[in-house]
Amino acid sequence: MNRRLCAAATVVLLAGTSLAQDMPPIASPLPPAADRSPKAAVVLADYRYGDLLWENDRTAHRIYGHALEAAEPPSGSGIDSWGKNVVWPFMDRQLRTGDQHAYHGEGLDFYNVGTGRGAGGLGIWFDNKLWTSRNYRSYRILKNGPNVADFEVDYAAWPVDVTRKVWEKRRFTLPLGTHFTRMVSTIRSDKPEPLLVGIGIGKRTTGDGGELTVDRARGLLSWWGPEDRGHGRMAVALRVDPAMIAEIRQDADNHLVLLRVTPGKPFVYYSGSAWSLGEGGFRSREAWDRYAAAEPLDFRLPR
């Protein structure tokens, strides 16, 4: 192959991701994917304490199962986000290596949820504090691709100070072609009074710093994470129904949007994320903010 054709082939291979010199070195290649076509997928990682993995052609996420609470304390109900630079599913093969924090050519996990909310976890805001659940207790996979990843989880009852208890069912839906997972949350309580639900973005998931954009009129919180040398950046955005917003604030671990919620009444919100070296081509805060603000999202509940 002559130099001109070789250069053209390289451009095609790297289109939609990033320049090769920007990528981390490959530790070892993953086992090849059986199908390299774009696909949405949800997988129960029963070999890893019940992690639930979901991804599409642009973004990848994980939540943690009950068994992890004992194996890796403290463990909580925040949402993990992985970088990916391929359009086919990779998370299950990456996690099975036992070395998901390294780059194996298709993506990596360098986002540290800790006990914060990560990329769109929630809690109940009461007495100037966020009261959060532990890891999910049960799940139901509703559709495992190819065009959508769709599942539900239940969170066991947790206390809000000593005044009440709440519990939650949440549905996660991620179709192809978007960075945003649609979430439908139903929070019930042993008392009928309204709740303030805090939905968060973790502050220090990829190191200290990061830049936050708030657009209350659009119901948007958009975070452009700090540069992690050798890993790039993670970007996270929340979109909520602006009519539900009570306040936008923060605690020690999270940037938060507080929503007025009626116990037993479902509500919709969206959480999106992207990797600066991955699918989507977001190489600047401005590009991510524009996308997050403009993505058409539907907050209506099905009748």
Rank of each mutant, 00 (worst) to 15 (best):
L221G: 03
G145F: 04
W223M: 06
L221Q: 11
S133C: 04
V214M: 11
I124E: 15
L176N: 10
T213Q: 12
R216Y: 01
V197I: 11
D161T: 08
A217N: 15
L196Y: 07
L174Y: 08
L174M: 11
V162H: 14
F172E: 03
S133K: 06
R182F: 03
I199T: 08
K129C: 07
G202S: 07
E152W: 05
V153G: 01
F172N: 05
S222Y: 12
G209N: 10
T132G: 05
S189N: 08
D208I: 03
V166R: 01
K169R: 15
A156K: 08
H179W: 02
I199L: 13
L221M: 10
T181F: 03
T206L: 05
V153M: 06
D150G: 01
A157I: 00
L196G: 02
K165T: 14
D127N: 13
I124N: 11
R134L: 12
Y136H: 10
N144A: 02
N147Q: 14
N147E: 15
R218Q: 15
R137C: 10
E227R: 07
N128F: 00
T213P: 10
E227A: 00
P175F: 04
L130E: 14
E168W: 05
P175W: 13
G200L: 02
R170I: 09
R171C: 07
G210H: 09
R182M: 07
G207Q: 12
G145V: 04
V214C: 07
P146G: 00
K203P: 15
V160M: 10
G210T: 05
W158F: 08
L142M: 06
G200C: 01
R216W: 03
F172M: 07
F151H: 07
K203W: 14
H179C: 07
G219E: 12
R216P: 12
R170E: 14
F172C: 01
V184F: 04
P194R: 03
